[in-house]
Simulated scan of single mutants.
Amino acid sequence: MKISVEISKYPLRDEYIPAIQDFIDRLNQHPDLRVITNTMSTQVFGDYDLVMDTLKQEMRASYEKFGRAIFVCKFIDGDLAPTEKMGERDA
Rank of each mutant, 00 (worst) to 15 (best):
P18G: 05
E64N: 06
M1S: 10
Y10Q: 10
G67T: 06
I7K: 01
K9W: 01
S41P: 13
R34Y: 07
I70P: 03
E15F: 14
R34H: 10
Q43K: 12
Q43E: 08
P18Y: 05
K9H: 01
L50E: 11
T54K: 03
E84P: 04
K65N: 08
I20C: 08
S4R: 03
A19M: 04
D77W: 04
F66M: 01
G87K: 10
R34Q: 12
I24R: 08
D53H: 02
Y48V: 07
M52D: 08
A69T: 05
L50P: 07
D79G: 09
M1Y: 02
V44W: 00
Q57E: 13
N28Q: 09
D22L: 03
L33P: 03
T54W: 00
R89Y: 11
D47M: 04
M1I: 05
A19F: 08
K85V: 14
V44H: 00
I3W: 00
D22F: 07
F66T: 00
D47G: 06
Y48R: 05
I17A: 04
D53V: 00
N38Q: 08
T39S: 10
D90K: 15
I3R: 01
Y63R: 09
L27C: 08
D77Y: 03
Q57I: 11
A69I: 04
D25I: 09
D32A: 12
D77M: 09
V51D: 05
T83S: 12
Y16E: 04
M59I: 06
Y48W: 12
R89F: 12
R89K: 12
Q29E: 15
I3F: 03
E88L: 14
Y10V: 12
K74I: 12
E84L: 15
R34F: 09
D14Y: 06
H30T: 14
D79C: 07
R13K: 15
V35K: 02
P18R: 05
P82E: 06
V5I: 15
Y16N: 02
A19P: 13
F66D: 00
K74W: 07
G46Q: 03
D90V: 13
G46A: 02
F23D: 04
I7G: 05
R89C: 07
T42I: 09
A91M: 14
Q43V: 04
Q29A: 11
D90I: 13
A81C: 15
P11T: 10
K9V: 10
